[in-house]
Computed example of a mutant assay.
Amino acid sequence: MASITKTNAMRILEKEGIPYQLYHYDGDTFVDGVSAAAKIGKPCEMVYKTLVTISANKNIHVFVIPVGKELHLKKAAKAVGEKSIAMLPAAQITQVTGYIKGGCSPVGMKKRYATVMDRSAQALDTIICSAGKRGMQMELSPRALAGLIGAGFADVVIGDETGS
């Protein structure tokens, strides 16, 4: 196996003493999260994607949700105290986060943004998310990840309605 260049996300985890397991696959082109899960042989329920949103008053918010789910914009806005939010245009991802689409990690963005992880992560011992480069995923404790990035947990995906 060729030597792996550590990403900013990996360096931060190591500096903080947070254990993680690295997975990689050919990341030359963008693949959706469900395909990424298949490429590393892990169930979709434990692989999470990092989504970046923007509010009407230009606040950036980050959401970490299962790859097989969609962000519920109204629930997400409520979770971060905004009237409404929209997905950040893909062309702005690198400028805002320092990462490219398909390689956006919740760890090590240019700035620390308000971040919410879907509550489903709380039921898992580990989740897998981007390590900060296409084709690189890292498995770690969702509680350790939340503590590191200052994230809260909330129901923010479509199809997880609790009687509403």
Score class of each variant (00 low, 15 high):
residue 10 M to Y: 09
residue 114 A to N: 13
residue 50 T to D: 06
residue 126 T to H: 14
residue 149 I to K: 03
residue 154 A to N: 12
residue 8 N to T: 15
residue 11 R to G: 11
residue 158 I to H: 05
residue 13 L to K: 03
residue 155 D to T: 07
residue 73 L to G: 02
residue 160 D to V: 01
residue 70 E to F: 03
residue 115 T to D: 08
residue 82 E to C: 05
residue 126 T to R: 13
residue 138 M to S: 02
residue 88 L to T: 10
residue 141 S to T: 05
residue 13 L to G: 02
residue 61 H to G: 00
residue 16 E to P: 04
residue 133 K to W: 02
residue 40 I to W: 02
residue 78 K to T: 01
residue 102 G to L: 05
residue 5 T to M: 11
residue 156 V to T: 11
residue 116 V to T: 14
residue 44 C to N: 15
residue 18 I to T: 13
residue 93 I to K: 04
residue 48 Y to N: 11
residue 151 A to M: 03
residue 26 D to H: 12
residue 65 I to H: 05
residue 95 Q to P: 00
residue 139 E to G: 12
residue 128 I to P: 01
residue 4 I to P: 10
residue 63 F to H: 04
residue 36 A to S: 15
residue 141 S to Q: 06
residue 9 A to E: 12
residue 102 G to V: 04
residue 74 K to P: 00
residue 5 T to D: 13
residue 23 Y to I: 00
residue 49 K to V: 07
residue 11 R to C: 09
residue 134 R to H: 12
residue 157 V to H: 03
residue 6 K to M: 13
residue 36 A to E: 13
residue 45 E to I: 00
residue 34 V to Y: 04
residue 160 D to E: 10
residue 96 V to R: 14
residue 26 D to S: 11
residue 131 A to P: 14
residue 94 T to C: 06
residue 157 V to N: 02
residue 55 S to Y: 04
residue 108 G to S: 06
residue 20 Y to Q: 03
residue 3 S to F: 04
residue 157 V to F: 01
residue 46 M to K: 09
residue 14 E to W: 09
residue 131 A to M: 05
residue 110 K to W: 05
residue 114 A to E: 14
residue 24 H to F: 07
residue 46 M to T: 13
residue 71 L to A: 10
residue 114 A to W: 04
residue 118 D to M: 04
residue 103 G to T: 11
residue 129 C to I: 09
residue 81 G to K: 07
residue 109 M to E: 15
residue 38 A to E: 15
residue 45 E to V: 00
residue 39 K to D: 13
residue 85 I to A: 06
residue 16 E to A: 02
residue 99 Y to W: 14
residue 6 K to D: 14
residue 66 P to V: 00
residue 5 T to L: 09
residue 9 A to H: 10
residue 89 P to C: 00
residue 62 V to I: 05
residue 125 D to A: 07
residue 133 K to S: 09
residue 26 D to W: 06
residue 128 I to D: 01
residue 104 C to K: 06
residue 19 P to A: 00
residue 15 K to P: 02
residue 39 K to M: 15
residue 15 K to E: 15
residue 3 S to Y: 07
residue 163 G to E: 13
residue 126 T to L: 03
residue 161 E to H: 08
residue 143 R to H: 14
residue 85 I to C: 10
residue 97 T to F: 14
residue 154 A to G: 08
residue 163 G to H: 12
residue 38 A to Q: 15
residue 119 R to D: 09
residue 74 K to A: 07
residue 141 S to R: 06
residue 133 K to M: 10
residue 42 K to S: 09
residue 14 E to M: 09
residue 110 K to L: 10
residue 124 L to R: 15
residue 128 I to Q: 03
residue 142 P to S: 05
residue 135 G to P: 08
residue 146 A to R: 11
residue 17 G to L: 00
residue 91 A to W: 05
residue 20 Y to F: 15
residue 144 A to E: 15
residue 144 A to G: 06
residue 137 Q to K: 15
residue 87 M to S: 08
residue 164 S to I: 08
residue 73 L to R: 12
residue 97 T to H: 15
residue 63 F to T: 00
residue 3 S to A: 07
residue 30 F to C: 04
residue 82 E to Q: 12
residue 100 I to L: 14
residue 140 L to E: 07
residue 90 A to Q: 12
residue 51 L to F: 05
residue 40 I to C: 03
residue 46 M to Q: 12
residue 102 G to F: 08
residue 92 Q to R: 10
residue 21 Q to T: 12
residue 69 K to Q: 06
residue 90 A to T: 10
residue 86 A to W: 08
residue 145 L to C: 10
residue 150 G to E: 09
